[in-house]
């Protein structure tokens, strides 16, 4: 057990947990930030994607002891801006079905657009291939990313 100060969505959160615990379970079980989802536990599905200093990472593969002092953003933090272009595009394209994987999809897409504001289909494939959607919303995800890249057009 260790005392940790985490910077999450611009706020400082204190937790006392095993530093080897994945960030995913700290967010979900200790901080009630349940928008970040458990899907596979092996970094294979992307449902747990969050931003660490602006980069998309799998929180199920990220030990909480290693993120002390770094900036963590979850879906709750990103979507607090209701005008976020990715969030808006997701609604405009009516992307989700069951919705379970969509937090991870949105976080991955937002990270892609920070690095690459005008991604091609191939860029989208490369960035999003780690995020599984069993409902099969991939075509809409692709359209929503292009829409967000074009400022909502």
């Amino acid at each position: 057990m260790a005392e940790m100060k985490l910077s999450i969505n611009g706020e400082v959160k204190r937790v006392s947990v095993d530093p080897a615990m994945p960030l995913l379970w700290v967010l979900r079980d200790f901080l009630d930030l349940t928008g970040t989802k458990f899907g596979c536990g092996l970094g294979l599905c992307g449902a747990c994607t969050v931003h660490l200093d602006g980069e998309a990472v799998r929180s199920c593969q990220t030990e909480v002891g290693k993120v002390d002092g770094r900036k963590i953003r979850t879906i709750e933090g990103l979507a607090a801006d209701r005008n976020h272009p990715v969030v808006r595009a997701w609604l405009d394209e009516q992307v989700p079905q069951c919705g379970y994987c969509q937090s991870g999809q949105i976080m991955q897409a937002a990270a892609l657009l920070i690095k690459n504001p005008k991604p091609s289909d191939e860029d989208i494939n490369a960035a999003m291939v780690g995020n599984i959607c069993r409902c099969g919303t991939y075509q809409r995800i692709r359209r929503a990313i292009h829409r967000a890249a074009q400022g909502g057009q």
Partner: peptide, 13 residues
């Protein structure tokens, strides 16, 4: 959908 794009949708888990 509004709840499913901002992390507030509550699933069983």
């Amino acid at each position: 959908l509004p709840a499913k794009i901002n992390g507030t949708a509550s699933f069983g888990i």
